[in-house]
Design a protein around this nucleic acid. Structure first.
Length: 633
RNA sequence: GGGCCCGUGGCCUAGCCAGGAUAAGGCGCCGGCCUGCGGAGCCGGAGAUCCCGGGUUCAAAUCCCGGCGGGCCCGCCA
């Protein structure tokens, strides 16, 4: 193509040639918009129409080109379909099972940090989105040949954990309600502590504000009402536990200070008993989280504890490096890194992928009681992630709301002399999941958990199976439910907020993981009936390449491009679009064309080869998306 | 107040970065197809000011500017 153009006096690399797929089949298989080539052909021709005519003539007889039609500024090319069919067969045969996947990351190493939710409540649908996306990223990189380490950051020294530990200590004598999953229970403990402390706080403020009255007073009253309502909800779920926590909070002179003391005692390991209690509390949550992840078909390679970073001295190391850095300042009385000057450097900003207009405030490293902040420990953790796995890149799957702290971490790494880490730390951001009525509130114990969704989904699938009178199989039910969940989380661009709608989540048709799974099982069924796993390649004869079959063959031919693009750009929604298109076409072709019963042997084997390709493309894509590719469904 | 992201039939989503012909898919709605290799399927139909207004261009859902609407961030939380 490029050569053909240069005979016309145009100079464009192949990648620059504006090839596109026409909107209607009558306009050919591919088209070139001559107008867009005018620049490359500068001065050679007068008008786009003239260029189209000359280009059309030049393309006649080129290998693979069947027919050329020029329509105004468009050069419509009809591919030599048999030629294309033969080339597809060659490709399929050569690439075998891995058709559609390009291994361009062989020899590279990645750490993917995902899920990593605060260990104070169960996986909710927000962290469910995180889990599905992170797993996709990990699998996409693995498919491309990279070595991947899946790591979960156990953030056990944060303020939230301090609340949970405070509540857990206060309610240790109480047994969790019968049958409640342990992480769900810990979620209540955390929310009860956080809410009770806040309520005490508000009560005090109310007393002070009572005399003045006015807007502030009414505002506080509203807030108190909300908190009381939240407590009531929690009490309903675990009465004794919540009572015990409220009692403890009431006894405190300053409940908030009590929690902060827990935080400091944990970070400085000043209270051995407390450290043990905290470990137990966090382990409880993690046990539940692990179980849920298992239901989703996700298993982490490592759980890295924040407290270990402190114990191993990595956090102290970071503080020391920061102190020696030229960007070190005392800001509002606490140690900080003033990376604003660094952020002014445009070239550096670009290299560290800091969003253009993002204003970077100084990064505070420690509280006035000496405890360090999440971001400080995250700097230490990033260094550890690179070190421990000898990683080329570290990808953090974290919600978009943390864009600023993530940018600060990169700048801080650079500031303390870890430029390589800074440049290779990727924030894979995704938008929030919200409920139709508004956001979820972990602090109040209001969220929809992944467990709940999976339970309902499984029940729904069972009901559906009952209707179709199929064999009831627990494994299949679970596989369909978790695939439907992941599909729902992956089919929308990560950049779009997701409004979680129970009604829609249960609609397993619109949410068509089962459709893809069904189509795949159908292709497998054909090979089962055929009694072999592969086409007889030498016998396959491309024939009757028109209609659905041609479109399917055409699509299968470019599937490796579509798939590899989605994997390179880490866009699950593109992968889903691509396989949906293929599944659609296959089903519609299948419904009216016999495959096994095709009498012409050469044609039959070609059909079998097409089915084989559909099967492989679906299977490989499903693996990356984390959907179960079942033989039977 | 500043910044980032999103706005596409009743609902959800793709297309936008790399501008091109009649805007694609799903749900829902209406109407068809089971003695056939799997009906969780297939075929057909109705349904759209591509948020609004300017600009650039032969050509704008797509690029630029200005609005409007929604989400998020701007903490000694994460």
């Amino acid at each position: 193509m490029s050569e053909t153009l240069s005979t016309l006096g145009c100079h464009a690399a192949l990648a620059e040639i504006p090839i596109e797929i026409p909107p209607r089949p009558e306009f050919g298989d591919i088209a070139i918009v001559a107008a867009r080539l005018m620049r490359a052909c500068g001065g050679v021709v007068k008008s786009p129409k003239e260029l189209a005519v000359r280009l059309g003539n030049a393309l006649e007889g080129v290998e693979g080109v069947g027919k050329v039609e020029v329509k105004g500024i468009y050069v419509n090319i009809f591919i030599d379909r048999e030629w294309y069919g033969r080339r597809l067969l060659e490709h399929l045969r050569k690439s075998g099972d891995s058709y559609g996947i390009i291994r361009d990351l062989e020899g590279t190493r990645f750490v993917i940090d995902y899920v990593s939710l605060n260990p104070v409540h169960p996986l909710h649908i927000g962290s469910g989105r995180n889990a599905a996306l992170g797993e996709f990223v990990a699998r996409a990189l693995e498919a491309r040949g990279a070595e991947v380490s899946r790591r979960y950051y156990v953030n056990d020294l944060g303020l939230q954990v301090a609340y949970m530990v405070y509540g857990y200590r206060a309610s240790r004598k109480v047994r969790p309600p019968e049958g409640m999953k342990i992480d769900h229970y810990m979620g209540i403990v955390y929310a009860a502590a956080a809410t009770a402390v806040e309520l005490e706080q508000v009560r005090k403020q109310l007393e002070e504000a009572r005399q003045e009255g006015g807007e502030r007073y009414r505002e506080l009253l509203r807030k108190a009402d909300e908190l009381v309502a939240a407590i009531a909800e929690l009490r309903h779920k675990a009465p004794e536990t919540v009572e015990a926590i409220i009692e403890a909070v009431k006894k405190e002179d300053d409940p908030e200070a009590a929690v902060r003391k827990v935080l400091a005692d944990l970070e400085f390991m000043r209270d051995e008993e407390l450290v043990v209690i905290a470990r137990e509390a966090v382990e409880n949550v993690l046990a539940g989280v692990r179980e849920t992840l298992e239901r989703l078909g996700i298993s982490m390679d490592a759980y890295d504890w924040e407290s270990d970073l402190v114990r191993e001295g990595l956090v102290a190391e970071v503080l020391e490096k920061a102190r020696r850095s030229p960007y070190y300042i005392i800001y509002k009385g606490v140690p900080a890194l003033d990376v604003r000057k660094l952020a002014e450097n445009k070239e550096l900003r670009r290299r560290l992928r800091i969003p253009e207009g993002l204003e970077i405030p100084p990064l505070i490293l420690a509280r006035s009681d000496g405890t360090t902040l999440y971001t400080t420990k995250d700097i230490a953790y990033t260094i550890k992630k690179f070190r421990i796995f000898n990683a080329d890149q570290v990808i953090n799957v974290i919600a978009v709301e943390q864009t600023l702290p993530q940018a600060q971490v990169r700048l801080a790494l650079y500031a303390i002399g870890h430029g390589r880490e800074a440049e290779n730390l990727i924030h894979y951001a995704y938008e929030m999941v919200t409920l139709p009525g508004g956001g979820m509130k972990g602090r109040r114990g209001r969220y929809v958990t992944v467990d709940q969704v999976l339970n309902t989904l499984e029940a729904h699938v069972r009901a559906e199976l009952g209707e179709t009178g199929r064999e009831m199989n627990d494994e299949i039910v679970k596989a369909v439910a978790r695939s439907a969940f992941k599909y729902m989380m992956l089919s929308t661009s990560p950049l779009k907020p997701l409004i979680f709608d129970y009604y829609k989540a249960l609609d397993i048709r619109s949410n068509s993981a089962p459709y893809i799974m069904y189509t795949y099982a159908r292709t497998r069924g054909i090979f089962r009936n055929l009694g072999r796993d592969e086409p007889e390649w030498e016998k396959a004869e491309p024939r009757n390449l028109e209609g659905d079959l041609w479109r399917l063959v055409y699509l299968l031919g470019k599937a490796p491009l579509d798939v590899s693009k989605a994997l390179r750009e880490l866009r699950p929604e593109d992968l889903i679009t691509a396989i949906n298109e293929i599944a659609n076409l296959f089903n519609s072709w299948y419904s009216r064309e016999p495959i096994i019963r095709e009498s012409d042997e050469g044609y039959r084997e070609f059909k079998v080869a097409v089915t084989w390709a559909v099967s492989k493309v679906l299977e490989n894509a499903m693996r990356v998306l984390g959907l179960d590719a079942l033989e039977k469904i």
